Deep mutational scan, measured.
Amino acid sequence: MGFKLLSKLLVYLTASIMAIASPLAFSVDSSGEYPTVSEIPVGEVRLYQIADGVWSHIATQSFDGAVYPSNGLIVRDGDELLLIDTAWGAKNTAALLAEIEKQIGLPVTRAVSTHFHDDRVGGVDVLRAAGVATYASPSTRRLAEVEGNEIPTHSLEGLSSSGDAVRFGPVELFYPGAAHSTDNLIVYVPSASVLYGGCAIYELSRTSAGNVADADLAEWPTSIERIQQHYPEAQFVIPGHGLPGGLDLLKHTTNVVKAHTNRSVVE
């Protein structure tokens, strides 16, 4: 069995187990497998329904001669939608809004960016022009300005110390501490036991640490421990890039980060 097929099978099995364990909360999309990078042309966006009122959005972007996937989250909030992270750029984010209108038909009224990198804030200006209120932590807003990236308009308070959590509509926002970046936030959907790890969490097929220019490698494993301790009931975990899975993604990420750190020390 090929690795790609095995990865998709694991996603399907995880979703099936969740649907059985929580039949009222989960209505997993039966329309197909989780979209992969090879299936999404740059400039297009796919939506994948995880649970009743919960979707991931998947886009792709060219970077350094390669094409990478990027995940975000959409959560229903009454007759409105909360968006977590842009679709990595203005063109993708405009396509995301169009796809949401086509498939869901509810307005996106608020959006949260989970850290300051372009795959999370690139497209904020498109959201703002569409009347979406954009939010991020003060740290993310400051770092985005320093980096020359787009800056969300509103500040999220109460997320300055490791372990801080605040309720934001249908989700809980959690600051686990520094990891992929010093400002990275985690998003949890309690009604569906869905954990969105953003770039602080890796997919299972990833074996290298990737972009760690703004990471705190020493603190990252401790931050992941905080996530595990705060959300032990999480059933569906979405990484910032690639295929979702279960809580095993947290341990896998820790292993990859520690291996990278150990290699760096040896070198």
Rank of each mutant, 00 (worst) to 15 (best):
G2S: 11
G2H: 14
F3H: 06
L5M: 14
S7T: 07
K8Y: 15
L9T: 14
V11D: 09
V11L: 06
T14W: 03
A19K: 15
A21H: 15
P23L: 12
L24M: 14
L24P: 12
L24F: 12
F26N: 09
S27I: 07
V28P: 08
E33K: 14
Y34K: 15
V42C: 06
E44N: 11
E44I: 07
V45A: 07
R46C: 06
R46E: 09
Y48I: 15
Q49F: 09
A51C: 04
A51K: 06
A51R: 07
V54I: 07
W55S: 00
A59V: 13
A59Q: 15
T60Y: 13
T60A: 12
T60V: 15
S62Y: 03
A66Y: 13
V67Q: 15
S70Q: 00
G72T: 01
G78L: 07
L83N: 00
I84Q: 00
T86Y: 04
W88L: 00
K91A: 15
A94Y: 14
I100N: 03
Q103L: 14
G105F: 05
R110A: 14
R110P: 06
H115I: 02
D118E: 07
V121M: 01
V121F: 05
V121D: 03
G123D: 05
V126K: 05
A129H: 10
A130V: 11
G131Q: 09
V132L: 04
S139Q: 14
T140V: 03
R142C: 06
R142Q: 13
R142T: 13
L143W: 09
N149I: 07
I151S: 07
P152F: 00
E157Q: 14
G158A: 09
G158K: 10
L159C: 04
A165H: 12
E172I: 06
P176E: 00
G177H: 05
G177N: 02
A178G: 14
H180S: 00
Y188S: 02
S193E: 13
Y196K: 00
G197D: 05
C199V: 00
T207W: 07
T207G: 13
N211I: 07
N211V: 09
V212T: 09
A213D: 13
A215P: 04
L217G: 04
L217Y: 02
T222M: 13
E225R: 13
R226F: 04
Q228E: 12
H230I: 11
P232W: 08
F236D: 08
I238V: 09
P239L: 04
G246L: 05
D248T: 14
L250S: 01
H252K: 04
H260T: 12
S264K: 10
V265M: 13
